[in-house]
Amino acid sequence: MGFKLLSKLLVYLTASIMAIASPLAFSVDSSGEYPTVSEIPVGEVRLYQIADGVWSHIATQSFDGAVYPSNGLIVRDGDELLLIDTAWGAKNTAALLAEIEKQIGLPVTRAVSTHFHDDRVGGVDVLRAAGVATYASPSTRRLAEVEGNEIPTHSLEGLSSSGDAVRFGPVELFYPGAAHSTDNLIVYVPSASVLYGGCAIYELSRTSAGNVADADLAEWPTSIERIQQHYPEAQFVIPGHGLPGGLDLLKHTTNVVKAHTNRSVVE
């Protein structure tokens, strides 16, 4: 069995187990497998329904001669939608809004960016022009300005110390501490036991640490421990890039980060 097929099978099995364990909360999309990078042309966006009122959005972007996937989250909030992270750029984010209108038909009224990198804030200006209120932590807003990236308009308070959590509509926002970046936030959907790890969490097929220019490698494993301790009931975990899975993604990420750190020390 090929690795790609095995990865998709694991996603399907995880979703099936969740649907059985929580039949009222989960209505997993039966329309197909989780979209992969090879299936999404740059400039297009796919939506994948995880649970009743919960979707991931998947886009792709060219970077350094390669094409990478990027995940975000959409959560229903009454007759409105909360968006977590842009679709990595203005063109993708405009396509995301169009796809949401086509498939869901509810307005996106608020959006949260989970850290300051372009795959999370690139497209904020498109959201703002569409009347979406954009939010991020003060740290993310400051770092985005320093980096020359787009800056969300509103500040999220109460997320300055490791372990801080605040309720934001249908989700809980959690600051686990520094990891992929010093400002990275985690998003949890309690009604569906869905954990969105953003770039602080890796997919299972990833074996290298990737972009760690703004990471705190020493603190990252401790931050992941905080996530595990705060959300032990999480059933569906979405990484910032690639295929979702279960809580095993947290341990896998820790292993990859520690291996990278150990290699760096040896070198």
Rank of each mutant, 00 (worst) to 15 (best):
M1Y: 05
M1R: 06
L5C: 15
L6Q: 09
K8E: 13
L9A: 13
L10F: 15
V11G: 07
S16P: 13
I17N: 10
I17L: 12
I20G: 14
D29Y: 09
S30K: 15
G32V: 10
Y34G: 08
S38G: 11
E39N: 12
I40Q: 07
I40H: 06
G43W: 03
E44S: 14
E44D: 10
V45N: 04
L47Q: 05
Q49V: 11
Q49Y: 11
D52M: 08
G53T: 12
A59V: 09
T60D: 04
Q61A: 13
D64N: 12
D64E: 09
V67A: 15
P69D: 15
S70F: 04
N71S: 06
G72T: 02
L73N: 01
L73K: 02
L73A: 04
L73G: 04
V75F: 03
E80N: 09
L82R: 01
L82H: 02
D85Q: 00
D85Y: 01
T86Y: 04
A87Q: 00
T93R: 00
E99K: 11
E99W: 06
I100P: 00
E101V: 08
I104K: 00
I104Q: 00
L106D: 05
A111C: 07
S113P: 06
F116P: 00
F116T: 00
H117A: 00
H117N: 01
D118R: 08
R120F: 01
R120V: 02
V121F: 03
V121C: 03
G123L: 04
V124N: 05
V126C: 03
A130G: 09
A130D: 06
V132P: 00
V132C: 02
A133K: 15
P138N: 07
S139L: 12
R142H: 14
E147I: 14
G148C: 04
G148S: 08
I151C: 03
I151K: 07
H154T: 10
S155V: 15
L156C: 03
E157F: 10
G158K: 07
S160N: 13
D164W: 05
G169E: 04
V171E: 03
E172V: 06
Y175G: 00
P176H: 04
P176S: 03
G177Y: 02
V194Q: 00
A200H: 05
A200I: 07
I201A: 03
S205C: 05
R206H: 15
N211V: 10
A215C: 06
A218F: 12
P221T: 11
T222S: 13
Q228A: 12
Q228S: 14
H230A: 14
Y231S: 02
Y231A: 02
Y231G: 02
A234H: 02
V237P: 01
L243M: 14
G246K: 10
G246T: 12
G246I: 04
L247W: 15
D248H: 08
L249G: 02
T253Q: 02
N255Y: 14
V256T: 08
V256E: 01
T261G: 13
N262H: 10
S264Y: 08
